[in-house]
Simulated assay, not measured.
Amino acid sequence: MEIFDIAILGGGMLGSAIGWGCASRGAHVAVLDGGDVALRAARGNFGLIWSQSKGDGAPSYAGWTRDALAAWPALAETLSGFAGRDIGYRAQGGLVFCLGEEELEARRAFVNRMHNQGASDLRLLSRAALLDLMPSCKLGPDVLGASFQPQDGHINPLMVLRGFHAGLAAAGAAHLPGADVVQIERDAHFKIHRADGTAVQATKLVVAAGLGTQRLATMIGLDVPVRPVRGQNIVTERLPPMLPLPASALRQTIDGTVQIGITNEDDGDPEPRTRVMNLSTMAARAVRILPSLAQAHSLRSWGALRPMTPDKLPAYAQSDTHPGAFVAVCHSAVTLAAQHAGPLAEGILAGRLPDAVAAFHPRRFHV
């Protein structure tokens, strides 16, 4: 039986980034994937490359995110080449709009708090400053200001995933979709048994299976609590340019469509369903920001599930009981993709995770 250097359990955004990062450095990689039936968080990702709302009270997360943003330009160029088209990476800054005085004051307090934690580039813009920044943007009267982070941006997450998958193929990785993992054995190598009766052997393995992470992590001696948090999205028809910068829950893509989102429904429901009440609330807020959207046609709406840890931060670890077995899970796999394909993959190849992720060990959930 063929023995791979590394088996990645999960072919979504996180697993594909780690797998490509390892394969592009010469490792013989197998990606075990659920295929098209998998509940991919990438399908519901809003597409932001985002730092301004992350890291409050968690400096390690803030630093990990900032480093990811710094590495994204080079990664975007590489992935566009693999995908065969522009993956939509734009990083001219990002906004969080404030509707009314209460939201403005809450955002002001947040910006001040983040300044005290080292986020010196994040700033609060008045309505007048917003109009100076985007003179062609017709904002609604309820928009009183916004926070602005000049390093933030956005991307097409499905094209990112396509780029990683094409990069895996170019690096000679094996993509093995369509069957769940049912057992992991450890002898001279890891032997990964699948529901279709096949097995894969590898010297190392990485559990990066999103909502399936908790079940698989127990097979390598790790307890990593993960729950589903639903997000819903709306996308409109193609429209004339109206929003030059992406915002939290509102962005215009390079194709001209406007994407509206995204909910955080932490209700324990394991289905990626949509709900009219939530969609209408999202749409109403978007129209308050950009009144011209009231005339736009909605083309489709959808829901997806994010894998969320109890404190909403990533979790990375190597197993003490199964050396050479690693776990990785996060809800921000697009923003952090450059880190997962870079230093995290390098650490897995070396057999030691980077010091930058030491704070994200899942043992913190059991103290």
Rank of each mutant, 00 (worst) to 15 (best):
F82D: 02
A119E: 10
G93A: 05
G140F: 06
G178P: 09
H165K: 10
V96L: 09
R113I: 01
Q117L: 06
L9M: 11
R194D: 15
D267W: 01
R186V: 03
V258S: 00
H361P: 11
R300M: 02
P157T: 03
R85K: 13
H115Y: 12
L158P: 08
F148R: 09
A128Q: 15
L130R: 05
D180H: 10
G94L: 05
A358Q: 12
H361I: 10
A41V: 07
E77M: 08
G15F: 11
A179H: 14
S16E: 04
D255T: 15
K204R: 15
T78C: 00
R364Y: 06
G178A: 08
L349D: 03
L279K: 10
P150Q: 08
S301A: 11
L48D: 02
S120L: 12
V276E: 05
D86I: 03
E102Q: 15
S248E: 07
S53G: 14
A358F: 00
Q295D: 13
N112P: 10
P314A: 07
A68K: 10
L14N: 09
Q117G: 08
P307C: 05
L168A: 05
A83C: 06
T263V: 02
V329K: 04
L176S: 06
H322G: 05
G172Q: 05
A170K: 10
A341I: 04
E77W: 06
P244I: 11
L99S: 09
Y89I: 05
L353V: 06
R25L: 11
M219I: 08
L290H: 06
A129N: 12
V96K: 13
R186S: 07
L39R: 15
P310N: 01
G167P: 05
V31S: 04
A74D: 13
D180A: 14
G153C: 02
L336E: 02
P343N: 09
G47R: 00
D187A: 14
C330P: 09
H361N: 15
L243N: 03
N112L: 11
R275Q: 15
V29N: 01
L130M: 07
N116S: 15
Q214H: 14
T274K: 05
R123K: 15
V224K: 04
A209T: 14
A209Y: 14
A62P: 12
A345G: 07
P157D: 00
R108Q: 14
V206W: 02
R108Y: 10
A23Y: 06
G145D: 11
G11P: 13
P323L: 00
S120Q: 11
P228W: 03
E105P: 08
A74F: 01
L125Q: 09
G347H: 01
T198G: 13
E237T: 15
G81D: 06
Q259K: 12
V181D: 02
S332T: 15
A199G: 08
G268Q: 05
I234M: 14
K54Q: 07
F360T: 08
E77D: 12
T321D: 10
M134F: 01
D132L: 12
E346H: 01
W72M: 14
A199M: 13
G57Y: 05
G55Y: 00
Q151R: 15
A345Y: 03
N233M: 15
L250D: 00
S332H: 11
